[in-house]
Amino acid sequence: MSILPLIFTSAWASGINSYAVVLLLGVFGATGLSDEVPEALQRPDVLIAAGVLFLCEAVADKIPYVDSAWDSVHTVVRPVAGAVVAALLAGQSGSLPELAAGAVGGSTALVSHLVKAGTRMAVNTSPEPFSNIAVSIAEDLGVGALITLAIFYPVAAAVIAGTLLLAGLLLLVFLVSRIRRFWRRRAERRAGKRLGQTVTQRSG
């Protein structure tokens, strides 16, 4: 069976939360539930590091504006993680060249990450913090559910991941104008405050 559906789903999920992907795949491999997971992802040090970083992301991802800063830092991390995981899965299976798998994994994770980061910027235009928490929890549950499904039903998981990726891109296009308006108003308010401070200082 081709490893491509599992690679695609793992790459999509890596763009959302790469640490969760490494942790879940490692656990599935270490417990013997999947033979597709390479030993490199099952190592105790890898699992511990992924677990700690997952907890860090679970906290940062639910705080307005901190989540966008975290996403900015991970613009490189997530695509690289997607490419590495894809190459390792391909190497374990032997049914797909590792270079091709890495290209698929990296590019898919990058697109998925951009959708996530853009959506979070739109969510941050809301004045309350609860939407961030709700979206973050939904993303974590979605990653966990799809990676689990991909282990047992890889084709079905890949179809869902592809649908979510396309829907996310369409949503992002719709939200671009809202994001631009928010940052324009924010810049105007800052400029207004600086102008007011300058006038006050001169009049004083």
Rank of each mutant, 00 (worst) to 15 (best):
A58S: 15
V59N: 07
V59M: 10
V59F: 11
A60M: 13
A60T: 10
A60P: 05
A60W: 09
D61H: 07
D61G: 10
K62V: 08
I63N: 03
P64V: 04
P64A: 09
Y65N: 12
Y65R: 11
V66P: 07
D67T: 04
A69K: 14
S72P: 09
S72V: 15
V73E: 05
V73Q: 07
V73N: 07
H74S: 07
V77C: 09
R78I: 05
P79T: 05
V85Q: 04
V85R: 03
A86Q: 04
A87T: 07
A87E: 07
A87Y: 08
A87S: 13
L88R: 03
A90M: 06
A90C: 08
G94F: 04
G94K: 05
G94W: 06
S95P: 05
S95V: 13
A100G: 08
A101T: 04
G102I: 06
G102S: 11
V104I: 15
V104M: 09
V111K: 01
V111L: 11
V111C: 02
S112I: 02
H113R: 04
H113T: 04
H113I: 02
L114P: 03
L114T: 08
L114Y: 09
V115S: 02
V115E: 00
A117S: 14
R120F: 01
A122Y: 12
A122I: 05
N124P: 07
N124T: 05
S126M: 12
F130H: 14
F130C: 10
S131V: 11
S131W: 13
N132F: 02
A134P: 05
E139Y: 10
E139S: 08
E139A: 10
L141R: 08
L141A: 12
V143F: 00
V143N: 00
V143R: 00
V143S: 00
G144I: 05
L146M: 06
L146I: 01
I147D: 01
I147L: 04
L149T: 07
A150E: 03
I151Y: 01
I151A: 02
Y153P: 07
Y153D: 14
P154S: 05
P154I: 00
V155W: 08
A156W: 06
A156Y: 10
A157V: 01
A158Q: 01
A158H: 01
A161C: 02
A161K: 00
G162P: 03
L164P: 02
A167S: 14
L169A: 14
L170H: 10
V173E: 11
V176P: 09
I179S: 01
F182K: 04
F182G: 11
W183F: 15
R184D: 12
R184E: 15
R185A: 15
R186Y: 15
